[in-house]
């Protein structure tokens, strides 16, 4: 009997909850498991569209109750758990051993669960009621910064993507990710989980292609509020950080750490959430 001919997947961008080809029609070739695949290569205009989608989604996302955001983030973990074979396969295709792939997928899912539980605690842990010396009620508490552009390191493709994006969205931000070109499959598989996990369209936008092409557009974009950049290229980081000053984006910058870092305890924490919240202080008189 002749072997069944498999159906191949077109590797698209994920913008505003839809899988789309690059507006330019361009792709980039990458070798995955000895096969040449062509993934969508995002352009400046795709980045622009993604920011627009992220901005549009932001008000709705941040106004959801923190409990609801937590449920949705948890749902993402559920979806990923049921699809872990697919994730492991994707990582395997990109070259990971079966054990390494299993470990990375488990760590990614567990990290998402961990952050799901943070959603409704961020405000409690980062708020203060301030004993001002006047008859006023005074509270400082965090709010999401807005639209955040993320440039994750190339590896570990899934775990680094999860570790950077999820803490940012769990406080109510929306993200546009300029993913590494090295492993588009992990990014796209993640997009498919996001698309089916009740995460509102536009909250997480994933662009495949060359970060070097897209990231500067995001760093300079006047409607992006913050930038999270991980790279081993110091000059690249410096260029992005400088572009980001035009509208005074909040910038977190790091040299890409060794891969082992991402599975460790330091790769998750409240300090992954905090750089992307704004502290708002509200005053009100207390009198009759």
């Amino acid at each position: 009997m002749a072997q069944r001919l498999s159906v191949r997947k077109t590797l698209k961008l994920f913008i505003g909850g839809s899988f789309v080809r690059s507006e330019s029609g361009r792709t980039f070739a990458c070798e995955l498991a000895g096969q040449t695949v062509h993934a969508a290569r995002a352009t400046r205009k795709d980045a622009r569209d993604a920011v627009r989608a992220a901005r549009a989604a932001w008000a709705g996302w941040r106004e959801r109750s923190a409990y609801n955001r937590g449920q949705i983030v948890y749902r993402l973990a559920e979806i990923m758990e049921t699809r872990r074979d697919q994730f492991e396969q994707a990582l395997g295709i990109a070259g990971a051993s079966a054990t390494a792939a299993q470990r990375e997928v488990s760590a990614s899912i567990d990290r998402i669960v961990w952050y799901a539980g943070w959603c409704d605690k961020i405000e409690q842990v980062l708020s203060t009621k301030n004993p001002v010396a006047s008859p006023h009620f005074n509270v400082s508490s965090p709010e999401p910064t807005g639209v955040v552009a993320v440039v994750p390191p190339p590896a570990p493709a899934l775990l680094a993507l999860v570790s950077t994006c999820v803490p940012i969205v769990c406080s109510g931000n929306t993200v546009v990710v300029a993913a590494s070109h090295e492993d588009p499959l992990a990014t796209i598989t993640f997009a498919e989980a996001v698309a089916t996990a009740d995460i509102p369209a536009g909250v997480i936008n994933l662009l495949t292609g060359y970060a070097a092409e897209i990231a500067p557009t995001l760093a300079a974009h006047m409607d992006v509020n913050a930038l999270d950049v991980w790279s081993s290229d110091g000059e690249f980081i410096e260029k992005l950080a400088e572009l980001a000053t035009d509208n005074l984006k909040r910038v977190r910058r790091h040299a890409a750490p060794r891969e082992i870092f991402w599975s460790g305890a330091k790769a998750q924490g409240l300090d992954w959430i905090e750089p992307f919240v704004e502290i708002k202080t509200v005053w009100h008189p207390a009198g009759v």
Binding site: T128, N130, V132, S140, I279, K280, T281, W283, H284
Partner: peptide
């Protein structure tokens, strides 16, 4: 970063002050 409800230009060392955007 600071919203004054029914008051304005109040400051206190215990109260965070600073901007968005």
């Amino acid at each position: 970063g600071v919203v004054w409800g029914n008051t304005f230009n109040k400051f206190d060392p215990s109260s965070a002050f600073g901007g968005y955007k």
